[in-house]
Simulated assay, not measured.
Amino acid sequence: MPLTARHPARGLLDATQDDLGCGWAWDQVHNVTPRADLSCTYCQHRMHAKRSVAGLRYFAHDPGGPQCSLGLETMEHRLLKLQLATAIRGAGHQADLEVRGPEGRWRADVLATTGSGRRMAWEAQMSSITADDARRRTATLAADCVVVCWVFVEGHRPWMPYVPAIRVRPPADRADPWRVITGLFRWTGLHWEPVQVLLDDFVAWTLNEQVVPRRFSPPRDYWVGGWTAPQYLAQAARRRL
């Protein structure tokens, strides 16, 4: 159930933006006659605009299309992508959804671009993947100068120690915020201590490089599966000397 679609004249439409990112109102594509000419950005099958019972806007494939990975996404996946895009824009940066990399080498659920041109992919990973696959996809993004943060909801992910990742908790009701519950650490002076924060704050800190992926010291070359502030890394390094 994608949040984007393509129109032959207007280009990419983004259901998370008030003007769909192209200067159109939602009622110009939703329940209109004749139908808006919309297609999937991945499989090119025809699409139509829909709204969930809770009011979330999205695009759906017409019947009879191929099996498209975007069409298989759950409501929880869509809500997390929407929250990530909202947090990025709230921090003053550009957010683009369901972005394909050059020659289709990678796909980002949400791609943030800062004012300085720094790009960061946010991967809402709901399905099962291997640690090798997560590391390969992380390296593919890095080869195109794209940092990545893997985001998942609850549960255990065996790949988390090998890529920069966080675990988040969705709101219990619509008034509650999303929270980062695993993956952010601070240095106490003696050991690393986990910290829980609002997801919106974490996104802003990460894009402003106030928190960075935390690595083990050489010769181990993989992530510890988390993030911390640069000053904590410096403090921990001084203690090891």
Results as ranks from 00 to 15, higher is better:
S39C: 13
S39A: 13
S39P: 05
C40F: 00
T41F: 00
T41D: 10
C43F: 03
Q44P: 03
Q44R: 15
Q44K: 12
H45T: 08
R46Q: 14
R46K: 11
M47D: 09
A49S: 12
A49T: 06
K50V: 13
K50W: 02
S52Q: 08
G55L: 04
L56G: 15
R57G: 07
F59V: 07
P63F: 01
G64N: 13
G65T: 06
Q67C: 11
Q67I: 13
C68V: 06
S69W: 08
L70W: 01
L70A: 14
L70Q: 11
G71K: 04
L72D: 13
L72W: 03
E73C: 05
T74V: 04
T74W: 00
M75N: 12
M75R: 05
E76G: 14
E76A: 15
E76M: 06
R78K: 09
L79Y: 02
L82E: 12
Q83I: 01
Q83S: 10
L84Y: 00
L84W: 00
A85H: 00
A85P: 09
T86C: 09
T86M: 07
T86W: 03
I88A: 02
I88G: 01
I88P: 00
R89D: 10
G90F: 00
A91I: 03
A91D: 09
G92R: 05
H93A: 13
